[in-house]
Design a protein around this nucleic acid. Structure first.
Length: 260
DNA sequence: GCGACAG
DNA sequence: ATCTTGTCGC
């Protein structure tokens, strides 16, 4: 099964674009950018198939929520490091399709994805996968370093993290061969732990880092943070409602009552 | 046996 | 991802 997944990744990888398709590289304030999207999945504890997929769209640069979509889904693929996309991407594509049908005018111009882009075992993480399938510019934002291609969370790495003094400070993440796969970013002045940015699709690493930083009120950029908060809350209510249905069974229907 | 392991 | 309250500090 994983061999098939690797084949799919290799095929889709050919379509990844690592450069800006908008004039953002040369625009300090991202002129023309008005909507940034964020996606996330939250899982129901103790249930390996129930999850909530959420997509939010925020205004830019104000970061106000313009659109929200939370949807309970039945996850079928297991979580395997390196193949996260095969577990989560179908529901995110569905969410994008619903947005396209309901509010095409709110289509985000960029999507922030929790997970990696080209910083990946085979150079094709969730952010690339979703980018190619939707055609949207995507940025990978991981909360933990994926230790691949010579990257490791060793003493040197921790030392580099300690050197990130101010919010906005970064250091490059280079592969053994010297290619820059991503950037560690101190996204929030008060947070010691960086986030790991990598190119997903249709955007350069430089623009990606700058944009993510400009979306941060806290450590996790607001679009992803809002998607996360909302999907967790949606699950909380979902679990609450289903447990109430068990302890308080539905009353017999009228048909059943009058049947006698 | 030990360490890794995006979410 | 999730298990989990308070708590120390700015």
């Amino acid at each position: 099964m994983q061999r098939g997944w690797e084949r799919d990744q290799a095929q889709l990888k050919a379509d990844v674009i690592e450069q800006d398709t908008e004039a953002w590289q040369s625009s300090p304030s991202f002129a023309g950018l008005e909507r940034v999207g964020g996606v996330d999945l939250s899982y129901v504890k103790g249930d390996d198939t129930s999850a909530c997929a959420s997509l939010v769209v925020l205004s830019y640069p104000d970061l106000e929520v313009l659109y929200e979509d939370c949807c309970m889904v039945a996850v079928n693929a297991p979580y395997v490091a390196g193949f996260l996309a095969f577990r989560e991407v179908p529901f995110l594509v569905d969410a994008m399709q619903r947005l396209e049908e309901r509010r095409p005018g709110l289509r985000p111009q960029v999507l922030l994805v929790d997970g990696n882009g080209i910083l990946h075992h085979r150079g094709f993480g969730l952010a690339c996968h979703l980018g190619v399938l939707t055609g949207l510019p995507c940025i990978g934002v991981a909360k933990n370093l994926l230790q691949v291609d010579g990257l490791s969370n060793d003493e040197l790495h921790k030392e580099q993290i300690r050197d990130l003094q101010a919010g906005g400070d970064t250091f490059p993440l280079s592969s053994t061969s010297g290619r820059i796969l991503g950037m560690a970013l101190r996204s929030y002045a008060k947070s010691t732990k960086p986030v790991y940015i990598s190119v997903g699709h249709k955007m350069s690493l430089q623009s990606a880092v700058r944009l993510v930083h400009s979306c941060c009120k806290y450590r996790v950029p607001e679009p992803i943070r809002q998607a996360d908060i909302r999907s967790r809350e949606y699950i909380r209510k979902h679990v609450e409602a289903s447990s109430a249905a068990v302890s308080q069974p539905e009353r017999m229907s009228e048909d059943a009552d009058s049947e006698h």
